[in-house]
Design a protein around this nucleic acid. Structure first.
Lengths: 338, 338
DNA sequence: ATCATTAACGTAAGCGATTACATAAAAATT
DNA sequence: AATTTTTATGTAATCGCTTACGTTAATGAT
């Protein structure tokens, strides 16, 4: 059932039917009503492909994400971002086309979905997309927004977690609420903005209270890496009473390794993490951490993208999503249930 | 840059260019080469939208999945299925359009992506899609394949894990390798096929070795639910020496609650799970389990779907993906590293 | 009453490909 | 050499919609 058949049934031209269906002026109330009625009876839905061809708008957004990080992490971070984005987009009549980037896909600006004019805009999720690739996409003039990533040289639409503020509030909690003054920070790869920002938040808190900064670096942010880092930290600073992990996995690793060394959490060593992955609550002791609103990030990214599609003249926006302190056992606030 | 411009540049008709680009016969070698050269120089890519309109084929597959299960589970099961599917599809020139189903989306056959003729086929992932909804989609005549789900009344394309065989081999391992003969099964909601099949596998193993079946039921398959079930089980059967969890979360919960009751794993209680989620290896003690090849399931589903799109006359296929026994500490095979 | 506006439609030309059909030239057959 | 078959290519319709422009009738202004 197509436009032409609806038009014939009503006894008007396809142009008129099209106007009605697109809520455009220039159609009398009676005709409008009649068209609507016939279309509803026929259960008619316009063919989006034909529409796209005619308007050069696909009503589709491309979601690009690194395959490994998306599917093989124990934290559904990117799936949740996708979920939030999909929610806003589908509510606004858009579809979502997904592309998972391999290591070998070095040139996202050549992605089939872009070259084939299949998308009106792009959501690029994760800090794994190189700046040069982002610039390449910017060069195609297709609207886009970065999630959990940004460009330092150049203003772009981006949605980020307030990592700095989150880490600051977590460290501050350890200082103010629990009177810790020997707090180490177990860090991660510095090329990812989140890790850098969290470190900055730690440094600000430590500096504000006149404490000595104690930072351990690593190339990974896994449980194993957390175990290694806490062992280094305790060797270096035997008087350590608290530790802040750059993410929950690191913090959980720290708790474990410390326990093996005879330091139990929270009694001998207070620990806090970042992210609030589902295992933070399940860990023993449960992990105090800083919660990220992942789904909301995706939602806001989608919103930002549709805004710039509708009003391309607007300057790029940088959105910071605030975090939330989640207090459990590992910082010492609650007694262990064990 | 479109077909017409390429045609003009080469000095042939658009029909000829189209033939060359679609590898169709009826073009001389010289002309073919020339067209290819000009197209390459112009960095030309056909407009998929126009192609779709002309051929009624979108080269796009819809991936439908329940939002909650997809994004808010601690196990990236469905993201990995999507990843596997995307891999096969993108390798074969297809795009992936994703729709996350809400509780309220009761009628997937009315999804915009279907009604707007945006997809050539559908991958429906998860047992959360009701049989009636699947029948509704079957009624639209659009090719589809179910993943981690099937229909009992009606043959359909589906890809499933060999849950029965996996559970059987796990239980058998407990019996043969560790001489357990009092093994409980901590189950889950029976409306999901995986849970039913795993229970069947347990029952087959138990029956084969002449043991008494001991099954606990629950409405959830979480850590908490595992904790509750093991407590019920130990109360009911105080001589229990081993327990099989319907999935890893349940198994981990069982280990924890048993520990609190003074039964340590694997010494006092051997435990095995199913799935091999990332926390199975990280758990203390590490969890012996049955590994599912999620990504492969997605890959095979995509393959199955493209097969039926290309040869619609073929009868539906049911694909069982085998599992793999992953032996760690919790069954008693390895000494605890603690 | 006459002329200028405006509103309500229709006509038809796109959008960028594919493809059935026509045609001309080349190759094969007799 | 004439005829048939095959091959290479072009012409033009088509996919289902949007939209610039043209037309007619109704409304308003003078």
């Amino acid at each position: 059932m197509d436009l032409k058949q609806i038009a014939k049934k009503v006894g008007v031209s396809t142009a008129t039917v099209s106007r009605v269906l697109n809520d455009q002026p220039g159609v009398s109330a009676e005709v409008r009503e009649k068209v609507l009625k016939v279309a509803a009876e026929a259960n008619y839905r316009p063919n989006q492909t034909a529409r796209s061809l005619a308007t050069s708008k696909s009503q589709t957004i491309g979601f690009v994400i690194h395959k490994e990080k998306y599917a093989f992490s124990d934290d559904p971070f990117y799936p949740q971002i996708l979920s939030g984005a999909e929610e806003y987009l589908s509510q606004n009549g858009y579809h979502v086309l997904i592309t998972l980037l391999d290591e070998k896909d070095k040139q996202p600006q050549n992605l089939p979905m872009i070259r084939q004019h299949l998308v009106d805009g792009l959501i690029l999720a994760g800090p794994f997309i190189q700046a040069s690739a982002v610039m390449g996409i910017a060069g195609t003039k297709i609207p886009f927004v970065l999630v959990d990533n940004t460009l330092s040289q150049y203003p772009v639409n981006c949605v980020l977690t307030d990592d700095e503020g989150g880490a600051y509030s977590g460290v501050r909690h350890l200082i103010e609420k629990h009177q810790h003054n020997k707090i180490a920070f177990l860090s991660g790869p510095q090329e990812w903005i989140s890790n850098r920002e969290r470190l900055r938040g730690y440094e600000r808190a430590v500096q504000e209270f006149g404490l000595e900064p104690r930072v351990i670096y690593a190339e990974e942010t896994t449980i194993t890496s957390g175990e290694k880092m806490i062992m280094q930290a305790l060797e270096k600073w035997s008087d350590l009473t608290a530790v802040y992990g750059v993410n929950d996995s690191v913090a959980i690793g720290a708790i474990r390794a410390a326990a093996k060394l005879g330091r139990s959490t929270p009694h001998d060593l207070a620990v806090m993490g970042f992210d609030d992955i589902s295992w933070a609550a399940a860990n023993q002791p449960s992990l105090s951490t800083v919660k990220i609103f992942t789904q909301r990030m995706g939602y806001l990214a989608a919103q930002c993208l549709l805004n710039t599609i509708q009003q391309p003249e607007l300057p790029p926006t940088k959105t910071l999503v605030t975090t939330e302190l989640v207090i459990r056992e590992s910082c010492g606030c609650q007694e262990s249930t064990l």
